[in-house]
Design a protein around this nucleic acid. Structure first.
Lengths: 203, 203
DNA sequence: CCTTCCAGATACTAACGGTATCTGGAATAG
DNA sequence: CTATTCCAGATACCGTTAGTATCTGGAAGG
């Protein structure tokens, strides 16, 4: 317990560093090749460790993926919040959000991972509930953004913001899932549906 | 080549029967437990064969699943077409379709299989294109139904029927994917969005 | 300085998709 | 009717993978 932690590479710090490296490498591989197609051996190897390091830091492959998804969600939320913060008018904000969604759905590696892991999670009630918990958070965040837009601009909406968020998230998942199989899918319907939901004329 | 095929259990007939049995058993297991969680050994065993029978009738696990999906789609299309044939007015037809979708999304074993296999198909360009081909057919069928509704009832629609079909299919996929993880998801937004797409007031 | 402890390495198992090979009996030729 | 061919399905095997059990080197702590 050094008073001044100079160069204090404690055991806990080293482990946290290992954990972070594993998450970073796993995120890259899961996004590039998918969950099932990425072996834990390869994650460990590319991170410069052995598989033992993985199982020492995560209960199993699923827990590693949950950690990866958390690290992704953190970044996504930052992006969307920033897009809203950097714009003032309703139209600009909607356009910024549409652009963000178009970008995500256009190269849907993230959506694909989310959907694939959802299929895996289905096998285990615990993992399913953990993933559902995260989906609920995302829906809540979208609903809050919708509330801001609706209140701010005095537009009319024909369903609750929670329901509208469910529609948008489902639409994003479904479009991304199809887009990862068929690049010709028309992703523009996302923005169109969004405008229609909040009672705006088609752009 | 008997003129009267009495009791003609030819080799081709036996193989077709084997193939049909395998598809039937695989459909039950894939729907109950998922694609990855169902081993070919188990499919063969429960069908009363060995794994050799599977590989003698299908190129691999993916081709077996494509055959299973085809057999499912056949039944689904029959159901929807019948629902339309059995009703006359726009409202009745929409309600029948909503009820069908609610039933499918409420116990989303089929949607879950479709989505899980989509993730698998992503690994192989050939399988991906085969699956995308089927999705395109489904979208076309939905678009055709929308055309009938729109023309028949003289309602207005703010996007092409192809785009509306894309929205509905994506929404169904996304809702089903979430529903299979979280039974509290509000599935009623499917019908609400559908009505809104074709310019009808909320029911 | 010596003991304890644990992050990570190593060695293993079971399960799975897929391949190679074999075989018994139906199909066909003579 | 007999002999030969052929192939649907069985059997035996392989490589890969998630997961488990065990070990070890070096930091933590007395």
């Amino acid at each position: 317990m050094t008073a001044i932690p100079e160069r204090a590479v404690t055991r806990a710090e080293r482990q946290a560093q290992t954990r972070g490296t594993l998450i970073k490498v796993a995120r890259r591989l899961f996004l590039a090749d998918g969950y099932a197609a990425t072996s834990l051996d390869r994650v460990a190897l590319e991170a410069g460790f052995s598989k033992g390091a993985v199982y020492s830091n995560f209960k199993n492959k699923e827990e590693l993926c949950l950690a990866v998804l958390d690290s992704i969600h953190e970044r996504q939320i930052e992006e969307v919040v920033a897009a809203f913060r950097d714009h003032e008018t309703l139209d600009e904000r909607l356009e910024a959000f549409s652009a963000w969604a178009r970008e995500r759905l256009g190269r849907p590696r993230w959506t694909a991972l989310e959907v694939e892991f959802g299929s895996v999670a289905r096998q285990s009630p615990y993992v399913a509930s953990e993933l559902a918990k995260r989906h609920t958070q995302v829906r809540g965040a979208i609903a809050a953004l919708i509330d801001v837009v609706v209140e701010d601009a005095g537009v009319q909406i024909s369903m609750t913001s929670e329901q509208a968020a469910t529609v948008l998230l489902s639409l994003g998942i479904g479009l991304g899932a199809q887009r990862s199989l068929d690049p010709t899918i028309d992703v523009s319907v996302f923005a169109a549906t969004m405008r229609q939901l909040i009672g705006l004329p088609p752009h």
